[in-house]
Design a protein around this nucleic acid. Structure first.
Lengths: 339, 339
DNA sequence: GTGAAAGCGCTAACAG
DNA sequence: CTGTTAGCGCTTTCAC
């Protein structure tokens, strides 16, 4: 059924080495023979077996992509960005879910290594020593998205999460808000958790405001958890005039909960998000948020990885893409009166 | 660096054949030797190379998954369902975007064939002759999600889209609605477009109602397109008391547009969705919709595929999963007065 | 039970 | 330029 290089060689009347040379254009081949080989290939509809090739070359044309959860629109869009680029370079994506579990990450990493993937694009909440050790030992090219790795030999692309969080919090402060709650992810998540939270804190500090623990809502990246966090907050009798959610999904959970409890957004309480996923535009109210060039992050990540795999050096190993604040309806524009 | 079976054999003082037997438990091995081998494996952290194995067995452990767009939450959840199952069977997913393009589909299909994937899970808007020809010739096991293929040798999993659309439309009719608009996908999309639209039509017919072309809004599966479709509808001076959106994303676009234009949902116009993506719960208002067991569809699809790849026959080649209507806040419950 | 040897399909070094 | 040969790492007859 499936043809091999031997059959081609036989049909063309040459050795299989010659066929190999023709296929790979690795060495000059006599035009006559070349033509015969080409003809035989076409006739047999021969396609070289990539598994056999992989065994020899130790490369497979496969790129491992590790993400926490594809149902998170942020990651979905990154994956789309990645695929758009690598497709044109004849690579394919092996998709792996990690669900934020370090154990699963390591499992997948080893598995991908064994499967001889050529490179890895890695979205993790935290780069650990185990990760570093793996990449050093395996020598697998890797680029981190949304996370920086101190290892000099790895690449990364992200935005300045600290700065963005600082800016959006400042936006509320400038307009007179003093009771600003934050909904944060676990601090073990270095950028989306820790960095964003730090931006929030420093913005308050810049206004000489203390960090009120009651205003710090703990959640993860799921809508329902943000919802619950806000419900606990309200049940506890707490008040705030603004809420900085550290992801759009969290902002949605928050707005949903607040309005379920009779609060009007933004009139009674303003809410901001982070990421600018498509739903931030279409939610009601539409959500003021930090716009990240998500698709671009995916594209950039794959371009860097490909450059590395092809042995090209990169000027910039840690690319920080620009972010902007997008003002929508979940916040007001005018100064607010003292709460 | 990477250990091979030879090194294990040497360390254990046996032949590599014996090591292989231990790994695969393919033949009985003397307990003493077995233990030695196991010890050597652990000591060297040996993992058999799947590429080499694949070369012998003519399998790669790779499954191609073709989807229109991973940023659509419906597909994202299916992919998650798929991965959950196949992971436990030591398979991996190669993810391919088709963007509803037949050409891209064929391209990917051929590429996957060349890459020697062991099977394919295919989400397409329409099964064409080219598809059928491909699967017959390549003999690649395939299961279709959300689409049925008449070919006796292929599997599929979906829900009864026609029936579901019929039911949700009937829900409006029963309560007195007579001007019910529908937002539909292109009819070239067999199930999500054609079947759902047919369900809507037949429900109206059952009430002796004519199909009013002005009440048929054309869109695709993107929020922004549904938004535009509704805007055109409104700009054209059309009225409706209910809208059957044939996906949740469409429902969101519709609600957003309607409220932007000053209509209250559900008080002035009721809207229903389809799919029951997570956002249907968290949108404002929450969306009455057809619940599909999305995750389950992914799981079922992979189970069927795996069964087929392992040569096990299946009793049911075309599985139709149950759906339910979930009532939420985008519709009312009581009968409405005549419009 | 076990080892030697052949071979999966391909590439690459080595002669010529 | 080209054919022969030796593997890539593993599984699997086939003898012993």
């Amino acid at each position: 059924m499936k043809k091999t290089i031997n059959e081609v060689a036989k049909l063309a009347g040459v050795s299989k080495a010659t066929v190999s040379r023709v296929i790979n254009e690795s060495k000059p081949v006599n035009p006559d023979k070349k033509e015969k080989v080409l003809k035989a290939i076409k006739e047999l509809e021969f396609r070289p077996n990539p598994v056999a090739r992989g065994l020899v070359h130790k490369r497979t044309g496969l790129i491992g992509v590790l993400i926490p959860d594809i149902t998170n629109p942020f990651f979905a869009e990154i994956v789309r960005g990645i695929e758009g680029v690598i497709q044109t370079h004849q690579f394919n994506i092996i998709l792996c879910h990690t669900f934020h579990s370090h154990e699963k990450e390591m499992e997948h990493l080893h598995m991908l290594h064994e499967k001889y993937v050529d490179g890895i694009i890695f979205m993790t909440s935290k780069v650990t020593d185990a990760h570093r050790k793996f990449f050093v030992e395996s020598k697998l090219p890797v680029t981190f998205v949304n996370r920086r790795c101190s290892d000099l030999n790895s690449y990364s692309v992200d935005i300045n999460n600290y700065q963005a969080a600082f800016e959006i919090t400042s936006f509320f402060l400038k307009r007179g808000h003093r009771k600003i709650a934050v909904i944060r992810a676990p601090l073990t998540d270095k950028t989306s958790g820790y960095e964003r939270f730090r931006g929030y804190q420093d913005a308050l500090r810049a206004y000489q405001l203390p960090i009120d623990e009651n205003l710090v809502l703990r959640s993860n990246f799921k809508v329902e958890n943000a919802y619950k966090a806000v419900r606990n907050f309200l049940d506890g009798g707490n008040k705030a005039s603004a809420m900085v959610a550290t992801s759009d999904l969290m902002a949605i959970g928050a707005i949903k909960c607040l309005t379920d409890h009779g609060y009007r957004v933004p009139e009674e309480i303003e809410v901001s998000g982070f990421d600018d996923i498509p739903m931030a535009t279409y939610y009601r109210p539409s959500i003021t948020t930090i716009h990240q060039p998500i698709l671009d992050m995916g594209k950039t990540a794959s371009k860097m990885l490909i450059a590395k795999m092809e042995g090209r050096g990169l000027l910039e190993k840690n690319i920080v893409l620009p972010h902007t604040i997008v003002f929508r309806k979940s916040t007001l524009k005018s100064p607010i009166s003292e709460v």
